[in-house]
């Protein structure tokens, strides 16, 4: 029976770990998505606001590359949100025309940046041509730091839950199997001499006794009729 407990625990522990890990992962991923979506919406709003200003200037005939006043706007918007790494105005050919970060001016806009979560808004002219983009870059390390705090909390609880659950399941399995062993070792013989768990004997005995009563009634009367 010890082997049965062990087999059950060997199978149950990995399944328990997998179930709790799945629950923790799904929860963390969901929080992460909500958070990035929330920050992304904020970044997108900033990008749209800058793009809208640039479009107004475009509609007045001022080319994008000549909108030097945007520089101040970008600096102001970036300073308003500690999560923002930079707000850039990018020309259609991918060159950063204006940026809240002076170092980025004149560089090529990278589509994938491991250090930033990007949100964009197109700058569209009155003739419906895309003249450029406003790119808001949120600091990935800052995002990750906030998410790491949330993830750390979930991980701690998941590990604690796993440890406690493993202990509880071990106790349940051991107690249940011990109970089973007790029931199986408590044996008794039926009227026919079969060794079976004692709890079975009364119900078998009930039938055996009923059968025996009929037989003894017959034994006390006469032998069966053998036909005419």
């Amino acid at each position: 029976m010890g082997k049965l407990s062990l087999t059950l625990l060997v199978v149950l522990f990995p399944l328990l770990a997998a179930s709790l890990a799945l629950g923790a992962y799904l929860n963390y991923a969901s929080v992460r998505n909500s958070y990035i979506e929330m920050v992304g919406t904020r970044m997108q709003t900033v990008a749209r606001r800058v793009a809208s200003d640039a479009q107004v200037a475009l509609s007045m005939g001022m080319p994008l590359a000549g909108q030097n006043a945007l520089e101040r706007l970008l600096t102001r918007e970036a300073a308003a949100d500690p999560m923002i790494r930079s707000v850039d105005v990018v020309a259609a050919d991918g060159t950063v025309l204006f940026s809240s970060d002076p170092v980025r001016r004149g560089t090529r806009e990278q589509e994938s940046d491991p250090m930033a979560e990007r949100r964009m808004a197109s700058i569209v002219s009155a003739f419906d041509t895309t003249e450029g983009l406003v790119v808001t870059r949120a600091s990935r390390p800052a995002l990750d730091a906030a998410l790491a705090r949330a993830g750390g909390g979930i991980l701690t609880v998941a590990v604690a839950a796993l440890s406690l659950a493993a202990l509880a399941i071990a106790i349940v399995v051991v107690l249940a199997v011990r109970g089973l062993t007790r029931r199986l070792t408590d044996r008794a013989a039926t009227a026919a001499g079969e060794e079976v768990p004692a709890e079975m004997v009364p119900v078998i005995a009930e039938i055996d006794e009923a059968h025996a009563a009929i037989r003894s009634r017959w034994a006390a009367s006469r032998p069966p009729a053998t036909g005419s």
Binding site: L16, R149, A160, A168
Partner: peptide, 23 residues
């Protein structure tokens, strides 16, 4: 086993809401 798992998953969910509220 089901009850233990439910309790474990519920604890994770509760912590998720707390952590999520915090950010």
């Amino acid at each position: 086993v089901t009850a233990i798992l439910m309790a474990g998953l519920a604890a994770i969910s509760w912590q998720t809401v707390r952590s999520a509220e915090a950010i």
